[in-house]
Write a protein that binds this DNA or RNA. Sequence first.
DNA 1: CTCGAACTTGACACCGTGTCAAGTTGACAC
DNA 2: GTGTCAACTTGACACGGTGTCAAGTTCGAG
Lengths: 199, 199
Amino acid sequence: MSRENVETRTRILDAAWKLLEAGQGSGVRMGDIAKAAGISRQAVYLHFPTRAELLIATTRHLDEVKDVQARLAASRSAATGAERLEAFIEAWGNYIPEIHGVARALRAMQDTDEAARLAWADRMAAVRDGCHAAVKALKTDGVLSPRHSVREATDILWSLLSVPVWEQLTRDCGWPQRRYVSRMKDLARKALVVRQATR
Amino acid sequence: MSRENVETRTRILDAAWKLLEAGQGSGVRMGDIAKAAGISRQAVYLHFPTRAELLIATTRHLDEVKDVQARLAASRSAATGAERLEAFIEAWGNYIPEIHGVARALRAMQDTDEAARLAWADRMAAVRDGCHAAVKALKTDGVLSPRHSVREATDILWSLLSVPVWEQLTRDCGWPQRRYVSRMKDLARKALVVRQATR
DNA sequence: CTCGAACTTGACACCGTGTCAAGTTGACAC
DNA sequence: GTGTCAACTTGACACGGTGTCAAGTTCGAG
């Protein structure tokens, strides 16, 4: 029973993920997800109280499946600040396309649903932590541009690496993912690192 | 009659604008706008066929009232490319906060409403033109970073100056408007201009 | 065999958008 | 004055999506 329960739950999450990833428009309804999961619409509500909660759970599920922690581990073990910055941009930058569908839907609900707003803010705060760590590493190495405080440099990096910027460059401008990552590294270096350090 | 008509129309647009600017959440309904304009909900539909059309008209109305053309004129008459870049960032960057409320509501409809999507895309294309002109001026001066094509430099500047970035820096990070404009100028210069030109 | 959890079916309330139809009001024409 | 026309009002309603409720059904474990 409880086994069944868990399986159905993940089937719902997988279905939601798949639909959000595929269906460009965020017009993914509870009924669509139910159908894709092979159950009735009501059954979805047996597992998730609201659409917002389902979306939030989907992002968590994604993190688990895609193992975000492992990806970020690389950046934490970098030797120099500049390397850490690059590794972080690489890890996060390459994670964005994988969560993009869900992220979009969640962001679309921000205005109407407080829980969704908090969930998104929480996840973005985690990204900010990564930015902060990278900037502090630069500071420790003494290569952080003196124009910026750690706080301000973190703000800039965080904004540079935000999902909407990724969306605009890869969707609207048609940049391939590789170029996005490459140029973001350049930009971050030029903006934050003094004397064009390393590499 | 036709006088009355026009007056009511602008009263609706002003009401919509005011509500969108004030009410943080984009939960501004047709009834709210009608009430704020002092007319019935149905009367709004006598002037605008759908909510999307009303929002689009509101942005146009804003452009008219705020005289966007005049603001951008300054950047067009700049002597050097670097000056043109700065003037453009100043003009557009200081325009964002004024249109932000409406922009938010319009962007929120992008997924569900094709007309809204096109309207927003159209306005952003106009901003891109401004970016493109500034970048071309840099190129003409021979100060455009050789790392980037005109196209790519335009993409970068356009993304840097996108509304979500402004939102994140001023809302989430609490930057005052002045700092936003100042840092954007720095960033754009570092990213696009060779040898830290001028000033 | 019975009990209970997971799930189904179908109905319904709620909300916001957009439509429809039948008024009311007031300016202007003659 | 009377007629007329446009702008606006009032109130009802269809539609689509979310979330709720109640009465089944199914199936495995005890």
